[in-house]
Amino acid sequence: MNDIDDAMLELIRVHNKYSLPGSFRRRSQVDARWPSNLNRSVQLDYFFNNYEPVDVKLESGFTPIKFVNLDSLEKAQIGYKWTNIDTNTKLNEGGDHASVVVLDDSGGGKPLVAKTNIENTPVFASYGVVAPFRISDSLADFLNALAKLIEIVYGEFNIFDVSDDDGLSSLFVARVEADISPLLGNKNFRGFFDYFYG
């Protein structure tokens, strides 16, 4: 799990550098607290055992996104994975048992989903009625890309200077592509960028 450790070292560094809300905590509670009706993966277990997000919210310059902690994991699936709010067990038509919402925008409706049945737990994104699309080949790659994005957004573009009245800053777009596309690959990068800025 060195890849996740490396990515989280960088994400925690930028999280602390910019005094962002929340924290990542080593709690080792997955076996005791993971909802029994949600699939797991080795990567998700490792992430939540060693870096459980607690009230972590990050700003992309367009919309804040929040990490889901273990206590909120089951509730985060409602509206994406499940339709029956009372029991949380009715899978949406065409729902995917292997998908677990691990981040979402602060209002809900733009889930970032870990696929537990694919090696390395790739991350997919969705919004509205759009079918989920891949944005990274592994959880570690996504966390690393997110750390790079936050460093650029907060460190170089003062959060909301990523755009102006004419749209996204061409300098911002070029900077993000230069740093993140090589990490994710072109196709995943296009999905990653579309999720955050499309």
Rank of each mutant, 00 (worst) to 15 (best):
79 G>Q: 03
57 K>T: 14
85 I>V: 15
65 I>G: 02
30 V>S: 07
31 D>G: 08
72 S>Q: 13
65 I>D: 01
58 L>I: 10
70 L>P: 00
56 V>T: 06
77 Q>C: 05
74 E>V: 03
42 V>C: 00
10 E>V: 02
88 N>I: 00
25 R>A: 10
8 M>F: 10
67 F>E: 04
82 W>R: 10
43 Q>H: 10
75 K>G: 05
41 S>K: 09
40 R>C: 01
30 V>G: 07
55 D>N: 14
39 N>H: 11
22 G>P: 05
31 D>Q: 09
17 K>I: 06
85 I>P: 01
84 N>Y: 02
22 G>A: 05
24 F>Q: 02
72 S>R: 13
67 F>Q: 04
26 R>L: 04
41 S>M: 03
70 L>Q: 11
73 L>Q: 00
32 A>D: 13
58 L>R: 01
48 F>H: 09
88 N>R: 13
37 N>Q: 14
79 G>W: 01
20 L>H: 10
67 F>V: 03
28 S>A: 13
85 I>L: 10
45 D>N: 12
34 W>S: 09
88 N>P: 00
15 H>R: 14
47 F>R: 02
73 L>F: 07
11 L>P: 05
27 R>D: 08
88 N>A: 11
77 Q>V: 06
23 S>Q: 13
34 W>I: 08
31 D>I: 04
51 Y>P: 03
17 K>F: 08
51 Y>V: 05
64 P>E: 13
79 G>E: 12
22 G>Q: 12
67 F>K: 02
20 L>W: 04
83 T>Y: 12
57 K>N: 09
42 V>K: 11
18 Y>F: 15
67 F>A: 07
70 L>W: 01
58 L>V: 05
88 N>S: 06
73 L>N: 04
35 P>Q: 04
87 T>S: 15
47 F>H: 01
24 F>I: 07
27 R>S: 12
49 N>L: 02
18 Y>W: 13
23 S>K: 11
33 R>W: 05
84 N>T: 09
26 R>D: 08
15 H>G: 03
44 L>Y: 10
78 I>T: 05
33 R>Y: 09
75 K>F: 07
61 G>W: 12
52 E>M: 09
81 K>G: 01
41 S>A: 13
12 I>P: 01
15 H>P: 05
18 Y>E: 00
37 N>I: 13
58 L>F: 04
53 P>M: 11
16 N>H: 11
38 L>A: 01
38 L>I: 12
33 R>K: 13
44 L>Q: 04
16 N>F: 00
57 K>H: 04
66 K>V: 08
71 D>T: 07
80 Y>F: 14
71 D>H: 04
28 S>I: 08
12 I>M: 14
27 R>I: 13
64 P>V: 00
47 F>M: 04
80 Y>N: 06
61 G>P: 05
74 E>K: 11
14 V>L: 08
12 I>Q: 13
54 V>E: 14
67 F>P: 04
41 S>E: 08
23 S>C: 06
13 R>S: 14
40 R>I: 12
33 R>C: 08
86 D>Q: 11
61 G>D: 05
